[in-house]
Design a protein around this nucleic acid. Structure first.
Lengths: 347, 347
DNA sequence: AACCAGGCCTGTATCGGTTCAGTAAATACG
DNA sequence: CGTATTTACTGAACCGATACAGGCCTGGTT
């Protein structure tokens, strides 16, 4: 006994089936289901019952096609896959984005690519084919080609990065310059006069910003010696850079890292070279993921709320999609979380 | 001087605009653009030129609606956000999935939720509204409600988990039982007679499988003493479990962990308690992300190719979507990567 | 010269929704 | 009680693509 209302196996029901079962027109089903006025309470109830019975949910494509707003947010990350696995940053950032999107029935379309040009291709295709209603852009470079390209496209976007990098796009960023300055001042206040920094990827704009801020702070505090090295953010390069620093004739007494992972690597290099942390060398991490509290000694770090950062970025993008005035501004500045890997230098 | 072919600001061109510019009908544009026969080479060239000039890309929704196959793959991860940030596993797994999807112009729709019931809701909505053409399911539990639910829906899926957990769904898994057995045999061969295990989340099926395999191996090898503790995979719980173990009167001489993070945590607990690794206690990690090589001593680990695992799962799902016979079977078994955290026990 | 076969292209139906003008019935008003 | 207003709903147009039946050439056969 096959009910005529339920189409044959595998077939998903359409609005027509629901309309037939409820004994109304397609239009009425649409109004009822979307909570629009124009149908009586009784009819609305009948429609919802019919939809429930058939397990009907409006076809998203059809909905989008007929002009409804549906928010799918795009995120493209352009870093080598191997590098991503270990970066706690992104997963937490994504979690934050999701926490906001979930409440709005929006979804995150994620794509990992190799380089910025490929990202542009993806963003362009997504936008033109209407797969996304807006995008979140990360990892800006100096003179980032995405700025002009995406602005030209008209793709609504929120950029994660300092305005000096993100052009006219609505942006959100952490004040890394201030954070670096705080970090250096803290180390200097402990008495350190020779401070090194193991930075991130040279091509990324925020690395340059931090490097400049580091130099400025070093000058201002009249440090005896300082240096910045660039890496690819990986643990192995962090280790290598640390090894070089610690093997130099007048080695630094403190090192500032651009992420947690490299600081962890630095910790074992110090051990490997027979140096005690923080007695012989102070280490200061960046991001402050859980990792920092799992090492021995626990890592002091510049700490920020990555989850909240992601959430805020998502909120701003949704606001843009709602047609609100784009909000551009910094989010909370990373603050120092002093733990056991920093101390005054031995004299 | 506004060309009539280019619609006003912000408006994305449609197939109609392209047709007009190329001086042909919509149908011809469709054929030309999709490489179908029925148009002359000259016309095809004109159409492609027009499309390029306008920056036209077919509207995905319209395409899907009119019956074309477009693959969007869904992935829902049901774990607390805080736990995800530090799990290198997922990012690498996702990278692997992406590496395959990218070649097929498919995208990954990602959603993070709190619990399996919420996941079912999401999957159901995605499928019914045709947002995804298939899904990848992870983190199976005993009697997982998703099996029946999604099979009933008819959602094409590939399950990541042992068939004893994934019901009739096409599945891919690592042979954790064999890997645990190898781990225990290795430790026993080194001379360890008291071995403990710090396991993952009790509710996850693969944790149960590993626990059972651990017990079986312990029996088989007539170990003097063994125990398994469950955790939530977090570093802090890994540390706590380790502390308890090492503080017990007849403490184990070797500990096997269910992920890298907890092993790292274990390492610092050992240090904190004045125990030397591997002289006083051997530690063996699981997954073998980059992290294992950044600690001191370097962590021995059960190593597997998470990136490749993700890629294989994606390949199997795409095969299912292509209508091929679903492929169910294990992927490569984790193998031992001995490093510096395991050694014969002190006598 | 008449006919047929392809090749190339147009026109229209279709997918599954939303929207809106229009209509019929119910209610309000004078 | 007749007319204006409101409410509840229908039917058709439309979104932007694809698919397919059919029309018009051109060239080859008989």
């Amino acid at each position: 006994m096959t009910g005529p209302a339920r189409p044959a196996g595998g077939q998903r029901p359409t609005i027509k089936d629901v309309a037939a079962l409820a004994g109304v027109s397609k239009g009425a089903v649409s109004m009822a289901f979307n909570g629009r006025p124009g149908v009586s309470d009784a009819t609305r109830a009948r429609v919802l019952a019919a939809a429930g019975a058939l397990g009907w949910e409006p076809n998203l494509s059809a909905r989008v096609l007929s002009g409804s707003r549906v928010d799918t947010v795009g995120l493209v990350i352009a870093r080598p896959a191997r590098m991503l696995g270990l970066e706690p940053f992104y997963m937490e950032f994504i979690s934050g984005i999701e926490s906001v999107l979930a409440g709005r029935d929006s979804a995150l379309l994620l794509r990992l690519v190799r380089d910025p040009d490929e990202e542009i291709e993806v963003q362009r295709a997504w936008w033109r084919s209407r797969q996304v209603s807006g995008s979140i852009l990360v990892d800006f470079r100096r003179d980032d080609p995405r700025v002009a390209e995406l602005a030209g496209l008209g793709l609504p976007a929120v950029a994660v990065g300092h305005p000096s990098l993100t052009g006219g796009l609505p942006a959100a960023w952490t004040d890394d310059a201030a954070a670096v300055a705080e970090a250096v001042r803290y180390l200097a206040a402990l008495g350190h006069r020779r401070i090194a920094r193991v930075g991130g990827a040279a091509e990324l704009g925020h690395t340059a910003i931090r490097t400049a801020a580091f130099e400025a702070a070093a000058h201002e505090l009249r440090l005896e010696q300082w240096s910045s090295t660039d890496t690819d953010f990986s643990g192995s390069q962090g280790a290598r850079a640390t090894r070089t620093l610690l093997a130099s004739p007048r080695r630094p007494t403190a090192i500032l890292y651009d992420n947690d992972l490299m600081a962890v690597a630095g910790l074992s290099v110090a051990a490997e070279m027979g140096l005690s942390v923080p007695r012989d060398i102070s280490l200061l991490a960046w991001d402050d993921s859980q990792l920092c509290q799992l090492t021995r000694p626990k890592l002091s770090a510049m700490s920020h709320d990555v989850f909240g950062f992601g959430a805020e970025v998502a909120r701003r993008l949704l606001a843009v999609l709602d047609g609100a005035q784009p909000q551009t501004g910094p989010v909370a500045t990373p603050v120092l979380a002093p733990r056991d890997s920093t101390a005054p230098p031995r004299r």
